[in-house]
Nucleic acid binder design. Structure first.
Lengths: 228, 228
DNA sequence: CCAAAAGTGTTTCACGTACACCCATGC
DNA sequence: GCATGGGTGTACGTGAAACACTTTTGG
Protein backbone atom coordinates (compact mmCIF):
# COMPACT_ATOMS: atom_id res chain seq x y z
CA UNK A 1 0.00 0.00 0.00
CA UNK A 2 1.08 3.54 -0.73
CA UNK A 3 0.24 6.48 1.49
CA UNK A 4 -0.17 10.14 0.66
CA UNK A 5 -1.18 13.20 2.63
CA UNK A 6 -3.64 14.29 -0.02
CA UNK A 7 -5.91 12.20 -2.21
CA UNK A 8 -4.56 11.54 -5.67
CA UNK A 9 -6.29 10.82 -8.90
CA UNK A 10 -5.02 8.27 -11.34
CA UNK A 11 -3.30 9.15 -14.58
CA UNK A 12 -3.78 7.25 -17.79
CA UNK A 13 -2.94 7.53 -21.46
CA UNK A 14 -5.29 6.73 -24.32
CA UNK A 15 -4.26 6.30 -27.92
CA UNK A 16 -6.15 7.08 -31.07
CA UNK A 17 -4.40 4.92 -33.63
CA UNK A 18 -5.26 5.81 -37.20
CA UNK A 19 -4.78 3.54 -40.18
CA UNK A 20 -5.87 3.82 -43.77
CA UNK A 21 -7.26 1.20 -46.07
CA UNK A 22 -8.71 1.35 -49.58
CA UNK A 23 -11.68 3.47 -48.72
CA UNK A 24 -11.63 4.55 -45.11
CA UNK A 25 -9.74 6.15 -42.34
CA UNK A 26 -9.77 3.57 -39.59
CA UNK A 27 -9.24 3.69 -35.88
CA UNK A 28 -7.99 0.86 -33.73
CA UNK A 29 -10.25 -0.14 -30.87
CA UNK A 30 -10.04 -2.82 -28.26
CA UNK A 31 -12.84 -4.68 -26.61
CA UNK A 32 -12.41 -4.40 -22.86
CA UNK A 33 -12.35 -7.56 -20.82
CA UNK A 34 -12.42 -5.80 -17.46
CA UNK A 35 -14.81 -3.56 -15.61
CA UNK A 36 -15.73 -0.82 -16.00
CA UNK A 37 -17.26 -1.02 -19.46
CA UNK A 38 -16.45 -4.70 -19.74
CA UNK A 39 -17.32 -5.87 -23.23
CA UNK A 40 -17.41 -2.32 -24.56
CA UNK A 41 -15.09 -1.04 -27.23
CA UNK A 42 -12.55 1.57 -26.18
CA UNK A 43 -9.36 3.29 -27.20
CA UNK A 44 -6.27 1.35 -26.22
CA UNK A 45 -4.61 2.85 -23.17
CA UNK A 46 -3.86 2.37 -19.53
CA UNK A 47 -2.21 3.61 -16.39
CA UNK A 48 1.00 5.57 -16.40
CA UNK A 49 3.81 4.19 -14.28
CA UNK A 50 6.01 6.34 -12.11
CA UNK A 51 9.15 5.56 -14.05
CA UNK A 52 7.99 6.35 -17.55
CA UNK A 53 6.98 9.44 -19.47
CA UNK A 54 3.51 9.75 -20.95
CA UNK A 55 4.92 8.98 -24.38
CA UNK A 56 6.61 5.85 -23.08
CA UNK A 57 3.39 4.77 -21.40
CA UNK A 58 1.46 5.23 -24.62
CA UNK A 59 3.97 3.17 -26.59
CA UNK A 60 4.04 0.47 -23.94
CA UNK A 61 0.27 0.18 -23.77
CA UNK A 62 0.02 -0.02 -27.53
CA UNK A 63 2.54 -2.81 -27.56
CA UNK A 64 0.81 -4.68 -24.77
CA UNK A 65 -2.71 -4.33 -26.07
CA UNK A 66 -2.26 -4.51 -29.78
CA UNK A 67 1.27 -5.58 -30.65
CA UNK A 68 2.00 -2.31 -32.43
CA UNK A 69 5.43 -0.77 -32.29
CA UNK A 70 7.63 1.78 -34.04
CA UNK A 71 4.94 4.26 -34.90
CA UNK A 72 4.31 7.96 -35.27
CA UNK A 73 2.96 9.23 -31.98
CA UNK A 74 1.95 12.68 -30.89
CA UNK A 75 0.32 14.14 -27.84
CA UNK A 76 -3.23 15.29 -28.41
CA UNK A 77 -4.87 16.69 -25.30
CA UNK A 78 -5.49 15.95 -21.66
CA UNK A 79 -9.06 15.02 -20.76
CA UNK A 80 -10.10 15.71 -17.22
CA UNK A 81 -13.85 15.72 -16.75
CA UNK A 82 -14.28 14.84 -13.09
CA UNK A 83 -16.68 11.96 -13.75
CA UNK A 84 -15.16 10.60 -16.92
CA UNK A 85 -14.25 7.37 -15.15
CA UNK A 86 -16.95 5.83 -12.94
CA UNK A 87 -14.47 4.25 -10.54
CA UNK A 88 -12.59 7.30 -9.38
CA UNK A 89 -10.90 10.43 -10.58
CA UNK A 90 -8.84 9.67 -13.65
CA UNK A 91 -7.16 12.22 -15.86
CA UNK A 92 -6.14 10.89 -19.22
CA UNK A 93 -3.62 12.27 -21.65
CA UNK A 94 -4.60 11.28 -25.15
CA UNK A 95 -2.21 10.62 -28.02
CA UNK A 96 -2.78 10.01 -31.66
CA UNK A 97 -0.76 7.76 -33.79
CA UNK A 98 -0.44 6.95 -37.47
CA UNK A 99 0.40 3.48 -38.70
CA UNK A 100 0.87 1.82 -42.04
CA UNK A 101 -1.96 -0.68 -42.03
CA UNK A 102 -0.20 -3.24 -44.17
CA UNK A 103 2.78 -3.42 -41.83
CA UNK A 104 0.86 -4.29 -38.74
CA UNK A 105 -1.24 -7.25 -37.88
CA UNK A 106 -2.92 -6.20 -34.65
CA UNK A 107 -3.69 -8.72 -32.00
CA UNK A 108 -5.58 -8.45 -28.79
CA UNK A 109 -3.51 -8.93 -25.67
CA UNK A 110 -3.45 -7.64 -22.07
CA UNK A 111 -6.79 -6.29 -20.87
CA UNK A 112 -8.42 -6.84 -24.24
CA UNK A 113 -10.62 -9.57 -25.62
CA UNK A 114 -10.22 -8.35 -29.08
CA UNK A 115 -8.72 -5.58 -31.15
CA UNK A 116 -10.09 -4.38 -34.45
CA UNK A 117 -10.11 -1.53 -36.94
CA UNK A 118 -13.25 0.54 -37.39
CA UNK A 119 -14.03 3.29 -39.87
CA UNK A 120 -13.70 6.49 -37.87
CA UNK A 121 -17.22 7.51 -38.75
CA UNK A 122 -18.73 4.18 -37.93
CA UNK A 123 -17.59 3.15 -34.49
CA UNK A 124 -19.67 1.40 -31.82
CA UNK A 125 -20.55 3.19 -28.59
CA UNK A 126 -17.28 3.70 -26.80
CA UNK A 127 -16.31 3.47 -23.14
CA UNK A 128 -15.56 6.55 -21.02
CA UNK A 129 -15.30 9.79 -22.99
CA UNK A 130 -13.52 8.05 -25.81
CA UNK A 131 -15.92 9.23 -28.46
CA UNK A 132 -15.05 12.79 -27.58
CA UNK A 133 -11.35 11.98 -27.68
CA UNK A 134 -11.78 10.40 -31.09
CA UNK A 135 -13.53 13.49 -32.44
CA UNK A 136 -10.77 15.76 -31.17
CA UNK A 137 -8.18 13.45 -32.69
CA UNK A 138 -9.84 13.43 -36.10
CA UNK A 139 -10.02 17.19 -36.14
CA UNK A 140 -6.38 17.46 -35.10
CA UNK A 141 -5.25 15.01 -37.73
CA UNK A 142 -7.03 17.07 -40.35
CA UNK A 143 -5.38 20.28 -39.17
CA UNK A 144 -1.99 18.66 -39.03
CA UNK A 145 -2.32 17.11 -42.45
CA UNK A 146 -3.10 20.49 -43.93
CA UNK A 147 0.10 21.98 -42.58
CA UNK A 148 2.60 19.17 -42.39
CA UNK A 149 3.51 16.24 -44.57
CA UNK A 150 2.59 13.50 -42.13
CA UNK A 151 0.32 11.56 -44.44
CA UNK A 152 3.19 9.31 -45.41
CA UNK A 153 2.98 7.68 -42.01
CA UNK A 154 -0.31 6.17 -43.13
CA UNK A 155 1.02 4.75 -46.38
CA UNK A 156 3.45 1.97 -47.25
CA UNK A 157 6.96 3.34 -47.66
CA UNK A 158 6.55 3.18 -51.44
CA UNK A 159 3.28 4.55 -52.73
CA UNK A 160 1.67 6.02 -55.80
CA UNK A 161 0.54 9.61 -56.13
CA UNK A 162 -3.02 8.37 -56.44
CA UNK A 163 -2.76 6.61 -53.11
CA UNK A 164 -1.45 9.80 -51.58
CA UNK A 165 -4.25 11.79 -53.10
CA UNK A 166 -6.83 9.31 -51.87
CA UNK A 167 -5.36 9.71 -48.40
CA UNK A 168 -5.87 13.46 -48.47
CA UNK A 169 -9.36 13.09 -49.86
CA UNK A 170 -10.37 10.61 -47.21
CA UNK A 171 -8.96 12.54 -44.28
CA UNK A 172 -10.02 15.99 -45.45
CA UNK A 173 -13.34 14.66 -46.70
CA UNK A 174 -13.35 16.46 -49.99
CA UNK A 175 -12.25 15.60 -53.47
CA UNK A 176 -9.13 17.13 -54.96
CA UNK A 177 -8.16 17.85 -58.52
CA UNK A 178 -5.66 15.28 -59.76
CA UNK A 179 -3.42 17.59 -61.75
CA UNK A 180 -3.32 20.30 -59.14
CA UNK A 181 -2.65 17.80 -56.41
CA UNK A 182 0.27 16.31 -58.27
CA UNK A 183 1.70 19.71 -59.04
CA UNK A 184 1.59 20.82 -55.41
CA UNK A 185 2.89 17.66 -53.94
CA UNK A 186 5.76 17.40 -56.41
CA UNK A 187 6.52 21.12 -56.02
CA UNK A 188 7.25 20.73 -52.34
CA UNK A 189 10.09 18.52 -53.53
CA UNK A 190 9.99 15.94 -50.77
CA UNK A 191 9.13 12.94 -52.90
CA UNK A 192 11.71 10.67 -54.42
CA UNK A 193 10.64 9.00 -57.64
CA UNK A 194 11.71 5.35 -57.53
CA UNK A 195 12.26 3.28 -60.64
CA UNK A 196 9.57 0.88 -59.57
CA UNK A 197 5.93 0.69 -60.51
CA UNK A 198 2.88 -0.96 -59.01
CA UNK A 199 2.61 -4.71 -59.46
CA UNK A 200 -0.43 -6.84 -60.25
CA UNK A 201 -2.87 -4.16 -61.23
CA UNK A 202 -5.37 -4.65 -64.01
CA UNK A 203 -4.45 -1.42 -65.72
CA UNK A 204 -1.45 0.79 -66.34
CA UNK A 205 0.87 0.49 -63.35
CA UNK A 206 1.59 3.71 -61.48
CA UNK A 207 5.04 4.91 -60.54
CA UNK A 208 6.04 4.45 -56.91
CA UNK A 209 7.45 7.27 -54.81
CA UNK A 210 9.16 7.48 -51.45
CA UNK A 211 8.96 10.30 -48.93
CA UNK A 212 12.27 12.06 -48.38
CA UNK A 213 12.29 11.94 -44.61
CA UNK A 214 15.84 13.27 -44.26
CA UNK A 215 15.24 16.28 -46.43
CA UNK A 216 12.04 16.99 -44.57
CA UNK A 217 13.75 16.91 -41.18
CA UNK A 218 16.41 19.26 -42.48
CA UNK A 219 13.86 21.73 -43.77
CA UNK A 220 11.87 21.48 -40.60
CA UNK A 221 14.87 22.29 -38.45
CA UNK A 222 15.52 25.25 -40.69
CA UNK A 223 12.04 26.39 -39.76
CA UNK A 224 9.80 25.64 -42.66
CA UNK A 225 6.10 25.40 -43.23
CA UNK A 226 4.26 23.43 -45.87
CA UNK A 227 0.52 23.57 -46.22
CA UNK A 228 -0.56 20.97 -48.73
CA UNK B 1 -3.72 9.74 4.92
CA UNK B 2 -4.83 8.22 1.66
CA UNK B 3 -3.98 4.70 0.58
CA UNK B 4 -3.60 3.17 -2.84
CA UNK B 5 -2.59 -0.24 -4.12
CA UNK B 6 -0.18 1.26 -6.61
CA UNK B 7 2.07 4.27 -6.24
CA UNK B 8 0.70 7.43 -7.75
CA UNK B 9 2.43 10.47 -9.10
CA UNK B 10 1.13 13.94 -8.49
CA UNK B 11 -0.62 16.02 -11.10
CA UNK B 12 -0.14 19.75 -11.47
CA UNK B 13 -1.00 22.54 -13.85
CA UNK B 14 1.34 25.32 -14.91
CA UNK B 15 0.30 28.49 -16.68
CA UNK B 16 2.18 30.56 -19.18
CA UNK B 17 0.44 33.91 -18.94
CA UNK B 18 1.28 36.27 -21.78
CA UNK B 19 0.83 39.99 -21.71
CA UNK B 20 1.91 42.73 -24.07
CA UNK B 21 3.32 46.13 -23.32
CA UNK B 22 4.75 48.86 -25.51
CA UNK B 23 7.69 46.92 -26.76
CA UNK B 24 7.65 43.37 -25.49
CA UNK B 25 5.75 40.19 -25.12
CA UNK B 26 5.82 39.50 -21.41
CA UNK B 27 5.29 36.43 -19.31
CA UNK B 28 4.06 36.39 -15.75
CA UNK B 29 6.34 34.66 -13.25
CA UNK B 30 6.15 34.14 -9.54
CA UNK B 31 8.96 33.91 -7.09
CA UNK B 32 8.55 30.70 -5.10
CA UNK B 33 8.51 30.92 -1.35
CA UNK B 34 8.62 27.17 -0.78
CA UNK B 35 11.00 24.35 -1.50
CA UNK B 36 11.87 23.06 -3.95
CA UNK B 37 13.41 25.95 -5.87
CA UNK B 38 12.62 28.38 -3.04
CA UNK B 39 13.48 31.87 -4.16
CA UNK B 40 13.53 30.86 -7.82
CA UNK B 41 11.19 32.23 -10.41
CA UNK B 42 8.64 29.87 -11.88
CA UNK B 43 5.44 29.69 -13.85
CA UNK B 44 2.35 30.02 -11.69
CA UNK B 45 0.71 26.68 -11.08
CA UNK B 46 -0.04 24.03 -8.54
CA UNK B 47 -1.68 20.75 -7.68
CA UNK B 48 -4.91 19.60 -9.26
CA UNK B 49 -7.70 18.70 -6.88
CA UNK B 50 -9.92 15.67 -7.33
CA UNK B 51 -13.06 17.69 -7.83
CA UNK B 52 -11.90 20.05 -10.54
CA UNK B 53 -10.92 19.79 -14.18
CA UNK B 54 -7.48 20.81 -15.32
CA UNK B 55 -8.88 24.03 -16.71
CA UNK B 56 -10.55 24.82 -13.40
CA UNK B 57 -7.33 24.11 -11.56
CA UNK B 58 -5.42 26.45 -13.84
CA UNK B 59 -7.91 29.25 -13.31
CA UNK B 60 -7.96 28.70 -9.58
CA UNK B 61 -4.19 28.74 -9.28
CA UNK B 62 -3.95 31.88 -11.33
CA UNK B 63 -6.45 33.54 -9.07
CA UNK B 64 -4.70 32.41 -5.93
CA UNK B 65 -1.18 33.23 -6.98
CA UNK B 66 -1.63 36.34 -9.02
CA UNK B 67 -5.15 37.67 -8.64
CA UNK B 68 -5.91 37.19 -12.33
CA UNK B 69 -9.35 36.17 -13.47
CA UNK B 70 -11.55 36.07 -16.56
CA UNK B 71 -8.88 35.34 -19.09
CA UNK B 72 -8.29 33.46 -22.30
CA UNK B 73 -6.94 30.04 -21.41
CA UNK B 74 -5.95 27.12 -23.55
CA UNK B 75 -4.33 23.79 -22.93
CA UNK B 76 -0.79 23.57 -24.21
CA UNK B 77 0.87 20.23 -23.52
CA UNK B 78 1.51 17.73 -20.76
CA UNK B 79 5.09 17.55 -19.51
CA UNK B 80 6.15 14.30 -17.98
CA UNK B 81 9.90 13.93 -17.73
CA UNK B 82 10.35 11.48 -14.88
CA UNK B 83 12.76 13.71 -12.96
CA UNK B 84 11.22 17.07 -13.72
CA UNK B 85 10.34 17.54 -10.05
CA UNK B 86 13.07 16.66 -7.53
CA UNK B 87 10.61 15.63 -4.82
CA UNK B 88 8.72 12.92 -6.59
CA UNK B 89 7.00 12.04 -9.81
CA UNK B 90 4.92 14.97 -11.01
CA UNK B 91 3.23 15.26 -14.36
CA UNK B 92 2.19 18.75 -15.25
CA UNK B 93 -0.34 19.89 -17.79
CA UNK B 94 0.63 23.32 -19.05
CA UNK B 95 -1.77 26.02 -20.21
CA UNK B 96 -1.21 29.30 -21.87
CA UNK B 97 -3.21 32.37 -21.28
CA UNK B 98 -3.53 35.81 -22.82
CA UNK B 99 -4.36 38.86 -20.74
CA UNK B 100 -4.81 42.54 -21.36
CA UNK B 101 -1.96 44.01 -19.36
CA UNK B 102 -3.70 47.24 -18.54
CA UNK B 103 -6.67 45.47 -17.00
CA UNK B 104 -4.76 43.48 -14.47
CA UNK B 105 -2.63 44.54 -11.59
CA UNK B 106 -0.96 41.31 -10.52
CA UNK B 107 -0.19 40.65 -6.95
CA UNK B 108 1.71 37.89 -5.28
CA UNK B 109 -0.35 35.66 -3.04
CA UNK B 110 -0.39 31.99 -1.97
CA UNK B 111 2.95 30.23 -2.34
CA UNK B 112 4.55 33.26 -3.92
CA UNK B 113 6.76 35.98 -2.56
CA UNK B 114 6.35 38.06 -5.59
CA UNK B 115 4.83 38.10 -9.02
CA UNK B 116 6.19 40.05 -11.96
CA UNK B 117 6.19 40.37 -15.71
CA UNK B 118 9.32 39.51 -17.66
CA UNK B 119 10.07 39.88 -21.37
CA UNK B 120 9.72 36.38 -22.77
CA UNK B 121 13.24 36.46 -24.13
CA UNK B 122 14.78 37.78 -20.98
CA UNK B 123 13.66 35.61 -18.10
CA UNK B 124 15.74 34.50 -15.13
CA UNK B 125 16.63 30.85 -14.67
CA UNK B 126 13.36 29.09 -14.00
CA UNK B 127 12.40 26.29 -11.65
CA UNK B 128 11.63 22.75 -12.86
CA UNK B 129 11.36 22.43 -16.65
CA UNK B 130 9.57 25.74 -16.90
CA UNK B 131 11.96 27.18 -19.44
CA UNK B 132 11.06 24.35 -21.78
CA UNK B 133 7.37 24.92 -21.16
CA UNK B 134 7.79 28.60 -21.91
CA UNK B 135 9.51 27.86 -25.21
CA UNK B 136 6.75 25.51 -26.27
CA UNK B 137 4.16 28.09 -25.29
CA UNK B 138 5.81 30.86 -27.30
CA UNK B 139 5.95 28.66 -30.35
CA UNK B 140 2.33 27.67 -29.91
CA UNK B 141 1.20 31.25 -29.48
CA UNK B 142 2.94 32.14 -32.73
CA UNK B 143 1.27 29.31 -34.59
CA UNK B 144 -2.10 30.15 -33.18
CA UNK B 145 -1.77 33.83 -33.95
CA UNK B 146 -1.04 33.01 -37.56
CA UNK B 147 -4.26 31.07 -37.94
CA UNK B 148 -6.72 32.58 -35.54
CA UNK B 149 -7.59 36.07 -34.44
CA UNK B 150 -6.63 35.71 -30.81
CA UNK B 151 -4.36 38.71 -30.62
CA UNK B 152 -7.20 40.85 -29.35
CA UNK B 153 -6.96 39.07 -26.04
CA UNK B 154 -3.66 40.85 -25.52
CA UNK B 155 -4.97 44.33 -26.30
CA UNK B 156 -7.36 46.69 -24.56
CA UNK B 157 -10.89 46.25 -25.86
CA UNK B 158 -10.48 49.38 -27.97
CA UNK B 159 -7.24 49.60 -29.87
CA UNK B 160 -5.65 51.19 -32.90
CA UNK B 161 -4.57 49.32 -35.98
CA UNK B 162 -0.99 50.28 -35.20
CA UNK B 163 -1.23 48.63 -31.82
CA UNK B 164 -2.57 45.51 -33.47
CA UNK B 165 0.21 45.55 -36.00
CA UNK B 166 2.82 46.02 -33.29
CA UNK B 167 1.35 42.98 -31.54
CA UNK B 168 1.82 40.83 -34.62
CA UNK B 169 5.30 42.15 -35.17
CA UNK B 170 6.35 41.48 -31.60
CA UNK B 171 4.92 37.98 -31.42
CA UNK B 172 5.95 36.86 -34.89
CA UNK B 173 9.27 38.65 -34.58
CA UNK B 174 9.27 40.24 -37.99
CA UNK B 175 8.16 43.54 -39.37
CA UNK B 176 5.04 43.86 -41.44
CA UNK B 177 4.03 46.29 -44.13
CA UNK B 178 1.56 48.82 -42.78
CA UNK B 179 -0.71 49.06 -45.79
CA UNK B 180 -0.85 45.34 -46.44
CA UNK B 181 -1.49 44.65 -42.80
CA UNK B 182 -4.39 47.07 -42.65
CA UNK B 183 -5.85 45.67 -45.83
CA UNK B 184 -5.75 42.10 -44.59
CA UNK B 185 -7.00 42.80 -41.13
CA UNK B 186 -9.87 44.96 -42.37
CA UNK B 187 -10.68 42.46 -45.10
CA UNK B 188 -11.41 39.72 -42.59
CA UNK B 189 -14.23 42.00 -41.50
CA UNK B 190 -14.08 41.30 -37.79
CA UNK B 191 -13.18 44.80 -36.65
CA UNK B 192 -15.73 47.39 -35.69
CA UNK B 193 -14.65 50.95 -36.27
CA UNK B 194 -15.67 53.04 -33.27
CA UNK B 195 -16.18 56.79 -33.42
CA UNK B 196 -13.44 57.35 -30.89
CA UNK B 197 -9.81 58.19 -31.35
CA UNK B 198 -6.73 57.92 -29.17
CA UNK B 199 -6.38 60.50 -26.43
CA UNK B 200 -3.33 62.39 -25.21
CA UNK B 201 -0.93 61.56 -27.97
CA UNK B 202 1.59 64.07 -29.26
CA UNK B 203 0.61 63.54 -32.87
CA UNK B 204 -2.37 62.71 -35.00
CA UNK B 205 -4.72 60.54 -32.97
CA UNK B 206 -5.54 57.14 -34.44
CA UNK B 207 -9.01 55.69 -34.78
CA UNK B 208 -10.00 53.04 -32.25
CA UNK B 209 -11.43 49.68 -33.25
CA UNK B 210 -13.13 46.86 -31.40
CA UNK B 211 -12.97 43.16 -32.19
CA UNK B 212 -16.32 41.71 -33.24
CA UNK B 213 -16.32 38.73 -30.92
CA UNK B 214 -19.89 37.69 -31.73
CA UNK B 215 -19.34 37.62 -35.43
CA UNK B 216 -16.14 35.70 -34.96
CA UNK B 217 -17.85 33.02 -32.87
CA UNK B 218 -20.53 32.69 -35.51
CA UNK B 219 -18.02 32.24 -38.29
CA UNK B 220 -16.02 29.82 -36.24
CA UNK B 221 -19.03 27.64 -35.60
CA UNK B 222 -19.70 27.69 -39.31
CA UNK B 223 -16.23 26.21 -39.70
CA UNK B 224 -13.98 29.00 -40.83
CA UNK B 225 -10.29 29.58 -41.01
CA UNK B 226 -8.42 32.86 -41.00
CA UNK B 227 -4.69 33.02 -41.40
CA UNK B 228 -3.59 36.58 -40.78
C1' DC C 1 6.72 74.91 -38.57
C1' DC C 2 8.40 70.74 -37.10
C1' DA C 3 8.06 66.10 -35.27
C1' DA C 4 5.49 62.00 -35.10
C1' DA C 5 2.50 58.80 -36.41
C1' DA C 6 -2.00 58.13 -39.23
C1' DG C 7 -3.79 57.00 -43.23
C1' DT C 8 -4.19 55.69 -48.12
C1' DG C 9 -3.70 52.80 -53.92
C1' DT C 10 -1.50 50.68 -57.50
C1' DT C 11 1.36 47.47 -59.79
C1' DT C 12 3.45 43.13 -60.00
C1' DC C 13 3.99 38.37 -59.48
C1' DA C 14 3.13 33.85 -57.64
C1' DC C 15 0.10 30.61 -56.77
C1' DG C 16 -4.43 28.29 -56.48
C1' DT C 17 -8.06 26.64 -59.37
C1' DA C 18 -10.68 25.07 -63.11
C1' DC C 19 -10.71 22.13 -66.72
C1' DA C 20 -10.25 17.44 -70.74
C1' DC C 21 -7.82 14.35 -73.17
C1' DC C 22 -4.48 10.66 -74.53
C1' DC C 23 -1.69 6.71 -72.73
C1' DA C 24 -0.33 2.23 -70.98
C1' DT C 25 -1.64 -2.16 -69.38
C1' DG C 26 -4.21 -6.44 -68.33
C1' DC C 27 -7.79 -9.17 -69.44
C1' DG D 1 -10.59 -3.77 -78.16
C1' DC D 2 -12.19 -2.26 -74.06
C1' DA D 3 -12.10 -1.10 -69.33
C1' DT D 4 -9.39 1.02 -65.84
C1' DG D 5 -6.75 4.15 -63.80
C1' DG D 6 -2.09 6.85 -65.05
C1' DG D 7 -0.37 10.77 -66.50
C1' DT D 8 -0.04 15.51 -68.47
C1' DG D 9 -0.61 21.59 -69.65
C1' DT D 10 -2.85 25.95 -69.98
C1' DA D 11 -5.63 29.95 -69.05
C1' DC D 12 -7.62 32.78 -65.54
C1' DG D 13 -8.33 35.07 -61.38
C1' DT D 14 -7.30 36.01 -56.69
C1' DG D 15 -4.51 37.31 -53.28
C1' DA D 16 0.17 38.41 -51.30
C1' DA D 17 3.99 41.61 -51.55
C1' DA D 18 6.48 45.67 -52.71
C1' DC D 19 6.44 50.34 -52.53
C1' DA D 20 6.04 56.46 -50.98
C1' DC D 21 3.66 60.25 -50.12
C1' DT D 22 0.07 63.33 -47.91
C1' DT D 23 -2.60 64.38 -43.71
C1' DT D 24 -3.45 65.46 -39.04
C1' DT D 25 -2.29 66.89 -34.57
C1' DG D 26 0.32 68.61 -30.65
C1' DG D 27 4.04 71.06 -29.02
Amino acid sequence: MYHYRYPRGALTVDCVVFGLDEDDLKVLLIERDQAPFEGKWALPGGFVRLDETLEAAALRELGEETGLSRLYLEQLHAFSRVDRDPRERVVSVAFYSLVKLGDHRVQAATDARDAAWFPVHDVPTLAFDHEEILEVAIERLRQKLRHEPIGFELLPSKFTLSQLQRLYEIVLERSLDKRNFRKRVLAMDLLIETDEVQQDVAHRAARLYRFDEKKYQKLRKAGFSFDV
